[in-house]
Amino acid sequence: MVERGVGEVVTKEELGGSQIHARGSGAVDNEVESEEEAFAAIRQFLSYLPQNVWQLPQRRPPDDDPHRREETLLSIIPRNKRRAYEVRRLLGLILDRDSFFEIGRYFGRPLVTGLARLDGYPVGVLASDPLQGGGGLDAPASEKMTRFIDLCDTFHLPCVNFVDQPGFLLGTVAERAGTIRYGVRALAAVYQATVPWVSVIVRRVFGVAGAAHGNTQRLNFRYAWPSGNWGSLPIEGGVRAAYKRDIESSPDPEARRREIEAKLDALQSPFRTAEVFDIEEIIDPRDTRPLLCEWVHMAYDILPSEVGPKRRGCRP
């Protein structure tokens, strides 16, 4: 059929295998080695979901301490803000132990999505992965975000977003891929969702992509770690634009740029801008789990008023 249609000679595996669909197209979310593992994965996936949209996701007897405070969280974000870190390790320290079920690991990799539990309650989890393009959303990651939020919204799964977002991916390849179109769809999905939301700002929030880190229309909390750093443009790129004339007219433009950057860097502190950025609270990273477990109870208190199909319909 393929050969007749487009003249391409391919094997079944090359056309529909997991290599292309779990690692390229995004048509397949997860791949496993065997049929047994596939059934186990499906069972686990379904365990977070309600039977139908008229019901709520089911809490499991919690097997982890909601007050667990991990010391490692104090140092998990490197002091050097250019250094990446292992975001899945961060998730493991905060969510119920071994409860994270990742969806679509090898597609749209700057964004990690999956289902997990907090104090036994199912939640949807989003997190930026700085090891993948710095965590900047590209077209596939935006598509992944849209689909994942729709899944959570459809089945009433409250969303937890761990934010370290430098903005949409830049460059000609990203532009040609139509990143902004996919990105805006992701933004729309966030704003259309009516599930409770909490964002934990672990590091950066920049650009249009950063603006989509939460939905302020519903129960929406924002906690920031002291490593938080936010605005519309980061100092590194912003100084070049805002001080263009100043820098260009200097005898040593490079040195002048560095001088301005250093001056602003020294002034930069999340404590100065948390209020204007509407951050409810800057927290000790060790308190993240206790606070999220408190939030999930509130979230499930309001969920009964949300059951039923969503008005937005299905976004294929």
């Binding site: 700085p130 090891l131 710095g134 965590g135 430098p166 991916l169």
Partner: peptide
């Protein structure tokens, strides 16, 4: 590699 101002090993 540096990408989006993050160093990626």
């Amino acid at each position: 590699i540096e990408s989006m101002k993050v160093e990626i090993p």
